[in-house]
């Protein structure tokens, strides 16, 4: 299957008064049409920045993309001018953001925010756009959509607003939706609803989905393939089942142990990963995870491990994957 989106060796850096921050330090991943791919990592791991870079939403300056390619349908998005990139936004790649409470413009009605992209990108008439917007709102489970169209965002709850955002993302029938922590700001009870809705709609409409999240639990249930990011790099990638059942990077393993899981007994402790992510301005020599890693050896301090294929599409960037799989700490 040919790839729909292919991010190759992407670097994103930010100039700050303290120094150059390498937010994304050479990541590569790909998404096939209709596939659900997750990018997992802690805050500051560069997952959101890499997603924004796809749509050219990294502010420049202070941001800069010194290296890499973002191929979408064979075309490098990084080489497009503003106008061509604008035609990709919304129309071919849509984005759903983290904060539904602040993602809608407070002084514009839901209806206008729903329809404006269709009018601008698809050349719809006002009435045609309105009818489609109402249909989309109904599809994402908003009751009385015609009445909601006339309302302003502050009258809607967080969950409802995220549903509106999803409807909006779908409105121009994109081939890919990038969802940046779409459920982080929502109640736990709503999270599952929203994710199931997104999965369901994307499957039905054949839209590929990139979910950016820090929650591996989310990943296990909805994603086909997973990329785990740490300190601006992808440290492990593979099929969701493989990663969940048998993580081959100490960081992924740590993430899984730090999440409460229903399939473990109550006596199993929840183990946090000790320490903090590294300072992106002054990265340690060697492996970035070494200071927090219980499998670390001398080799880890000397050189950063490259990604190596373990088996069938499962890759990990660790010198000690064997020790990890045997469960022997250094």
């Amino acid at each position: 299957m040919s790839e729909l989106l292919s991010v190759e060796d992407l670097h994103v850096e930010f100039k700050t008064p303290e120094g150059l921050v390498r937010a994304v330090d050479g990541i590569s991943y790909s998404v096939s049409p209709g596939e659900v791919v997750a990018v997992v990592g802690e805050s500051g791991s560069g997952k959101s920045v890499s997603a924004r870079a796809v749509l050219g939403l990294v502010p420049r300056p202070p941001g800069n993309i010194p290296k890499g390619r973002i191929l979408f349908d064979g075309q490098d998005l990084l080489t497009l001018d503003d106008d061509s990139l604008r035609k990709v936004r919304g129309r071919r790649i849509a984005m759903i953001f983290q904060e539904p409470m602040t993602s809608l413009n407070p002084v514009i009605t839901i209806g206008r925010q729903m329809t404006e992209a269709m009018v601008a990108n698809l050349g719809y008439g006002k009435r045609q756009a309105r009818e489609k917007a109402i249909e989309l709102l109904r599809m994402v489970g908003i009751s009385e959509p015609a009445r909601r169209m006339k309302q302003y965002p502050h009258l809607l709850s967080g969950g409802m607003r995220q549903r509106v955002m999803i409807a909006m993302a779908l409105s121009c029938e994109p081939e890919l939706i990038i969802a940046d922590e779409p459920t982080t700001a929502l109640d736990v009870t709503i999270q599952a609803q929203i994710l199931t809705l997104m999965e369901d709609l994307c499957q039905r409409l054949g839209v590929a989905l990139v979910i950016i999240t820090h929650n591996l639990g989310v990943v296990a249930r909805y994603a086909h393939r997973v990329n785990v990011m740490y300190a601006g790099r992808i440290v492990e990638k593979g099929e969701a089942g493989d990663i969940y059942q048998q993580p081959r990077h100490p960081y992924t393993a740590g993430l899984l142990e730090s999440v409460p899981r229903m399939d473990r007994s109550r006596e199993d402790p929840i183990l946090p990963i000790p320490g903090n992510p590294p300072d992106l301005i002054q990265m340690p020599e060697g492996c970035a995870f070494r200071p927090r890693c219980k499998y670390a050896t001398d080799q880890c301090a000397i050189a950063a491990p490259e990604m190596q294929v373990l088996h069938r599409g499962h890759e990990s960037a660790c010198w000690n994957t064997d020790a990890l799989s045997r469960g022997v700490a250094a």
Partner: peptide, 12 residues
Amino acid sequence: DYMQVARSKGLK
């Protein structure tokens, strides 16, 4: 945030 959302929708 809503400005970034609006920009991501492909508006001029």
